Simulated assay, not measured.
Amino acid sequence: MRKGRWTTGAIAVLMAAGSLAVAVPEASATDAVNATKASTTCPKGWGSLPKSATAGSQEPRPLTGIRTGRHDCYDRMVFDVPGSGSAPLAYHVAYVGVFRQDPSNRVIPVSGGAILEIRVSAPAYDPQTGHPTFPGRAGKVLPGVDLRGYRTFRDARFGSSYEGVSQVGLGVRARLPFRVLRLADRVVVDVAHTW
């Protein structure tokens, strides 16, 4: 009988130790996630004022795609305009109260706490043939862009492609700082998660 009590007691001790062992890794995993977040240094100084750049004379190149990505500090939208060795593209990015289609001035509803209007000097069609190179339709969600799970982006609508400029309305959570990166074959718009 004594042996039976010892076994029951030993089992109780082992079970208690086992439950502690299970709790320790969970706390360690949480601590590791918090340490990673604390070590991420987000860029500062972007601001929310309009940003634009002009380009020298160049042959117009067509817009072939718009894609998005999520990062620790910001959400990203990329406008792909192939053409290696070409001059960087012109762009204008600014917060607007209402997104209006160019040139009709028709209001296009865009969800979110604030709207960024993005204009890139790349038509959504081949300038030589007139054939579409990007399937965006006025007022519709950007094709191939799914913003579920994004911290900052809420909605993305195609405005128009008029006189060599493609226009997009990007709905964001609030008026947050952003930056624009201009490369030879794309324009990148990053919108921060916080100030």
Rank of each mutant, 00 (worst) to 15 (best):
M15N: 05
A16L: 14
A16F: 14
A17Y: 06
L20M: 08
L20H: 07
V22W: 14
E26R: 13
A27I: 15
A29Y: 13
A35R: 14
K37M: 10
A38P: 04
T41L: 12
T41D: 08
C42T: 10
P43F: 15
G45Q: 14
S48K: 05
S48G: 03
L49K: 10
A53K: 11
T54W: 07
A55M: 11
G56F: 15
Q58L: 11
R61M: 12
P62R: 02
T64W: 02
G65Y: 08
I66C: 05
R67M: 07
R67I: 08
R67D: 07
T68C: 07
D75P: 01
R76V: 10
M77I: 15
D80H: 09
P82V: 04
P82D: 03
G83L: 05
G83M: 07
G83I: 09
S84H: 02
G85M: 08
G85Y: 08
A87H: 03
P88E: 04
A90I: 01
Y91M: 04
Y95E: 03
Y95N: 04
V98S: 13
V98W: 02
F99T: 00
S104V: 04
N105M: 12
R106P: 01
V107Q: 11
P109L: 09
G112L: 01
A114I: 05
I115G: 00
L116Y: 09
I118Y: 10
R119H: 10
A124L: 05
A124W: 00
Q128N: 13
T129F: 11
P132F: 12
T133G: 01
F134K: 00
P135V: 03
G136E: 02
R137F: 09
R137G: 11
A138C: 08
G139Q: 02
G139D: 02
K140N: 10
V141G: 08
L142M: 03
P143G: 02
